[in-house]
Simulated assay, not measured.
Amino acid sequence: MLTKKEIEQLIDKKNSSLKIVKPTVTPKSSAAWNSFSHIYVNNIKQEYVICNQCEELLIYKPSSGTNSLSKHISSCQKVKTTASHNQTTINQFYASSKNEPAIPDRVKQEINVACVEFTALDSRSFKTIHGIGFKNLAQKIFDAGKYLPISKDINVEKLLPHPTTVRMIFFNLL
């Protein structure tokens, strides 16, 4: 069985060994199964299911029942939004007209947490992440991913220069 993080990585990479399968719903099945799909990796059923609305992974064991799935449905923001609004909002309309790819909520959440950790661990102002220099650095690191092999895990420390190198380049630019 894979961990949640390993499954999330397979989903993000659209790995062909991963299959998301909607369960067969019978009259005896819980209504919760209409909102979830099973996760299979190399045709082995994992102990996780995925919410069809928000794509959150939840641990699921048949012995535990579907109570946690039902609780997720009642708190899932995407389900609430979809159920309560049939009309497209202006934000949704303009967002769909952009050519930018949608960023999964899970990725945004991980970046949010990393920004909080960055500001706390390095004693930086919260405004630091909104600065031009930080955005430029983040974009360059992100763009570097285009040139690196996807199948390899890259240690970001190998991408970042030593502080003395930064100092030397800074003074050479003056």
Score class of each variant (00 low, 15 high):
Lys80Trp: 09
Ser37Val: 03
His38Thr: 07
Ala32Thr: 00
Ile73Phe: 00
Asn43Glu: 15
Ile59Asp: 05
Ala83Met: 11
Cys54Arg: 07
Phe36Asn: 04
Glu55Asn: 14
Gln46Glu: 09
Ser63Phe: 05
Ser96Gly: 02
Pro27Tyr: 00
Leu69Lys: 08
Glu100Trp: 15
Asn34Glu: 05
Ile44Trp: 13
Ser37Ala: 12
Asn99Gly: 15
Ser37Pro: 11
Tyr40Asn: 07
Ser35Lys: 05
Cys51Gln: 04
Ser30Asn: 11
Glu55Cys: 15
Gln87Asp: 14
Ser29Glu: 01
Ala31Tyr: 08
Val49Asp: 07
Glu55Asp: 15
Asn42Val: 06
Asn99Trp: 03
Cys54Asn: 10
Lys45Val: 01
Ser37Gly: 13
Cys51Pro: 13
Lys78Cys: 14
Leu69Pro: 03
Leu69Tyr: 04
Glu56Ser: 05
Ser68Phe: 10
Ser29Gln: 13
His85Asn: 12
Cys54Ser: 14
His85Glu: 05
Asn52Thr: 00
Lys98Ile: 00
Ala31Lys: 08
Lys98Arg: 06
Thr82Lys: 06
Glu56Arg: 02
Asn91Glu: 01
Ile50His: 11
Ala32Cys: 04
Lys45Trp: 02
Asn91Phe: 09
Gln46Trp: 11
Leu58Ala: 01
Glu55His: 13
Val79Gln: 10
Asn52Leu: 13
His85Ala: 06
Ser37Leu: 08
Asn67Gln: 11
Val41Phe: 13
Thr81Tyr: 05
Tyr40Ala: 04
Ser97Glu: 13
Ala31Pro: 04
Val49Lys: 09
Lys28Arg: 13
Lys71Val: 10
Ile50Thr: 12
Glu47Ser: 13
Ser30His: 10
Pro62Trp: 08
Asn67Phe: 09
Ser68Asn: 14
Ser75Asp: 12
Tyr40Arg: 01
Thr82Asp: 03
Asn99Cys: 05
Pro62Asn: 14
Ser68Leu: 05
Gln92Phe: 03
Leu58Asp: 06
Gly65Asp: 01
Pro62Ser: 06
Lys98Leu: 07
Glu47Cys: 07
Ser63Thr: 07
Asn43Ala: 14
Cys51Thr: 04
Val79Tyr: 08
Ser70Ala: 15
Ser64Thr: 11
Pro27Arg: 13
Lys80Asn: 04
Tyr48Pro: 05
Ala32Gly: 09
Ser97Trp: 01
Thr89His: 12
Ser74Arg: 12
Trp33Gly: 02
Gln92His: 08
Ser68Glu: 10
Ser97Tyr: 10
Thr82Arg: 05
Val41Pro: 07
His72Lys: 10
Ile39Trp: 00
Leu57Ala: 03
Tyr48Ile: 09
Asn52Lys: 14
